[in-house]
Design a protein around this nucleic acid. Structure first.
Lengths: 207, 207
DNA sequence: GTATATTAGTGAATAAATTCACAGATATAC
DNA sequence: GTATATCTGTGAATTTATTCACTAATATAC
């Protein structure tokens, strides 16, 4: 079966929220509360779950642990995913040891940069390499995800290298849109577009 | 008139692409090429422009400069927006002098953190302050946008402070969803959800 | 100057996503 | 034990978004 991006997006947010609930020791959660927590409606969430065949309990809602496991199983979110970061500027190094990633099931295995100087200067526990070694290392370390934090001009080239090396997904923080074959999942997330969206949105609201 | 988030999102991406085209000295661009560049279809883009009353030229497409100006005018994207960053951990400091922001019409006016120590250690040209001074500074410096880069636990509190201080939009990079009044535009953009989305998506594709 | 190919513009058709409305189940109150 | 309130589950209705299909305009080729 195939799910829409919207559904998958909601499911990922729900997964994150379930993690929080689990930590708090909460056992059941209603569609209404979930909706509230992730910014959706109770209808949509029940519809999503209905499609996915996740069942709840009348007057109690959904069992947090079990739901989290089901989502994790279905979308393979409860196994560690191996990622690398390409481009060790400020953003790249910030992400290198962004603790949350590790916590949330993503392991940053390596960082890459074109500048040897930069690599020598970086202080981190993660291994960093010249980009020339990327293909080799992605393959040998079984890295599945590439995170692009290079400047826009270099993004496409980096994407091509990553794909050739065998990653299956790419998260692109550079301002340039990248072209990838259909089989590769990718997401363009540049900050400027995000900020512009807010600016545009609130300017429109105002009227 | 009111535009959908999808439309506004596309328009923001188009705006970014037009900036690139302008730099390259390209004068005209077709809906097809625009679509390709931002990851949409030519139909949608023509529809968007039709709704927005942006006109093109038969067999030549849209005039880059003029289109960019029209979008900029309509969505107020060609005036500088003043923003601040709250939470000067690795991500926050990385964003503090993310050069692209300045280039793209966003001016980071100040950074805030709860830890005085951290503030003293930070090396940047941007002014940094204790969070207690936020209300005061947001008001006096006319800051319109807040960027939240604190840990999840603190996100809501920071959002409340920002809103009370008078910002009109919030970009939240923390993993927690924040609740804001309807009049405030906000966007939750946590990296983990983004990565999860990719992971989930490629796992679904695979089947 | 004429034919041709390309590109915008847009109402109509289609598809996708969300919401509604209500039946079914069951905890809770009394 | 009965009534009531609450919550899920899901077809149907509605709304929203996208794509199609075609007209009109005009650069370009020859």
């Amino acid at each position: 079966m195939d799910f829409s991006n919207n559904t998958i997006d909601r499911i990922c947010r729900i997964f994150g929220y379930l993690t929080v609930l689990e930590k708090k020791g909460i056992d059941f959660i209603s569609s209404k509360e979930l909706a509230e927590a992730i910014g959706a409606t109770e209808y949509t969430i029940r519809k999503d779950f209905s499609t996915l065949n996740f069942k709840g309990y009348t007057r109690r809602g959904y069992a947090v642990k079990s739901l989290k496991n089901k989502i994790g199983d279905k979308f393979l979110l409860n196994q560690k995913r191996r990622a690398c970061i390409v481009g060790l500027g400020r953003l790249g190094t910030a992400l290198l040891d962004y603790e949350k990633f590790q916590e949330d099931g993503f392991e940053i295995i390596a960082g890459f940069d074109i500048s040897i100087n930069k690599i020598e200067r970086i202080q981190t526990d993660i291994d960093v390499f010249a980009i020339s070694r990327l293909p080799d290392i992605v393959k040998s370390k079984n890295i599945e995800l590439g995170i692009i934090t290079v400047p826009g001009e270099a993004a496409q080239k980096v994407a091509d290298i990553l794909i050739k090396a065998g990653v299956k997904g790419i998260l692109n923080f550079s301002p340039a849109k990248i072209n990838v074959p259909q089989s590769i999942v990718h997401l363009d997330k540049d900050f400027t577009s995000a900020l512009r969206f807010i600016a545009a949105r609130f300017m429109v609201e105002r009227k």
